[in-house]
């Protein structure tokens, strides 16, 4: 059990760093967004071509990376919204059980499905080095790779979550400590 919990802590640290990478991209996506508006007007004023599909596509590439890289971090911080009509009244131990079973039977299979069906799609994109159909656009195979990366990160964090909830359910960890309630950043 202790070895598993050590693994869980290593995974948590890893996910934390990936999450930081994801939220550092937030100001970048704001910057690129503002740039795309500004260059339309500045470009017209000075009569030069500033805007391009490079920046337009970079904007949604970064946006995609934010939530695809952030998913595991959000899982770790209990950020994915639940229907808690019943859940909110469960005891911490029962919550731990819901989370343990949910991780094993909902999260992991769904991520497995995403990887299984995503693989040939991403592989095809790499094989032909799929490009943007628009002039000056960015290579598609790079951003499509994140379709695989994201569920892999989720599975890794899911393993850590399962360990923690299992420990909580068995009483090795204090359930009320593991089942964190973080609501403050939701919409």
């Amino acid at each position: 059990m202790q070895a598993l919990l050590r693994l869980s802590r290593i995974i948590d640290t890893f996910t934390e760093w990936v999450g930081r990478l994801a939220y550092i991209l937030v100001p970048v996506v704001v910057g690129v967004g503002v740039w795309n508006v500004a260059n339309r007007y500045v470009g017209r004023a000075i009569g030069r071509t500033l805007g391009s599909n490079f920046y337009i596509e970079a904007q949604w590439y970064i946006f995609s990376m934010i939530f695809l890289l952030g998913a595991a971090y959000a899982l770790k911080h209990n950020e994915h919204v639940r229907v808690d009509v019943f859940y909110s009244n469960f005891s911490p131990k029962r919550k731990a059980l819901v989370n343990l079973l949910g991780t094993l039977f909902f999260l992991l299979p769904f991520c497995g499905l995403l990887i299984y069906f995503g693989w040939p799609y991403v592989e095809q994109s790499w094989r032909i080095r799929e490009n943007s159909p628009d002039p000056g656009g960015l290579p598609r195979y790079i951003i499509k790779t994140f379709l695989i990366v994201s569920p892999i990160l989720l599975i890794i964090q899911g393993i850590s979550e399962a360990i923690k909830y299992f420990a909580a359910f068995r009483g090795v960890l204090d359930p009320s400590q593991v089942v964190v309630e973080e609501k403050e950043t939701k919409l």
Partner: peptide, 18 residues
């Protein structure tokens, strides 16, 4: 029903699909 269990919606919907 699956959503009612209380596991995060995103993955519960995915599991329903499976």
């Amino acid at each position: 029903v699956i959503l009612g269990i209380g596991y995060p919606v995103a993955f519960s919907l995915g599991a329903t699909a499976i």
